[in-house]
Simulated assay, not measured.
Amino acid sequence: MSAKPSRLSSSSEEDFHHLIDERKRKRMESNRESARRSRMKKQQRLDDLVNDIARLKSENGQLQMQIEVYVPQYMKFESENTILRTQVAELTERLQYLNSILRFMEEFSGMAMDIQEIPDPLLKPWQLPCPAQPITASANMFLI
């Protein structure tokens, strides 16, 4: 009878080793599958980033082309604006001179004259006394 328990124990040991080997095999398969999924996710993320780079480079190129179109227009408007500001300053100076002549005439003649105060156009240009004329613009006036 002593032979049977050793058989059982050796058979149990074999079963135990087989069970452990089966668990190791399943764990290794699971680890391989997990590593494969991880590599796939990493590759997908890399592909997404490469696509993002290509898309952003394309957008950047388009924006640079738009900037190249709009910079000359901006420079033109800036130049015109400088000219207009200079003209406003010159005309304001002339008007002040004419008002001083009118004040002198008013004082000298004793006759009351309606001399209006000249607003400073550089401080509040939106409050200049201008005729109410609509400003017309179209959506494509800045396009070339």
Results as ranks from 00 to 15, higher is better:
K41H: 14
R25E: 03
M65Q: 14
A112S: 15
I20S: 05
L8S: 01
I67M: 15
A35Q: 00
I101Q: 06
I53R: 07
L19V: 03
M75R: 10
Q62D: 06
G110Q: 05
Y97W: 03
Q87F: 02
T136Y: 11
L63A: 13
E78T: 02
D52A: 10
P119V: 01
L84A: 15
E14G: 08
D21Y: 00
P119T: 02
L123W: 00
E68R: 15
L84Q: 06
I144S: 05
H18M: 06
K124E: 11
P131D: 11
L84R: 11
V71K: 14
E33R: 03
W126I: 02
P72A: 09
R7G: 08
L102M: 12
L98S: 05
A137C: 05
Q73W: 09
I118E: 04
D47F: 10
Q73S: 12
A137K: 07
A137R: 12
Q133K: 15
E90V: 09
M75E: 13
L49D: 11
S2T: 10
D114Y: 01
P119K: 00
E33I: 00
R7K: 08
H18R: 14
E68T: 07
P125I: 12
M28D: 09
A89Q: 10
A54N: 13
S10F: 03
D120I: 02
S12H: 08
E90Q: 07
I144E: 06
N60D: 12
E107R: 13
L123R: 07
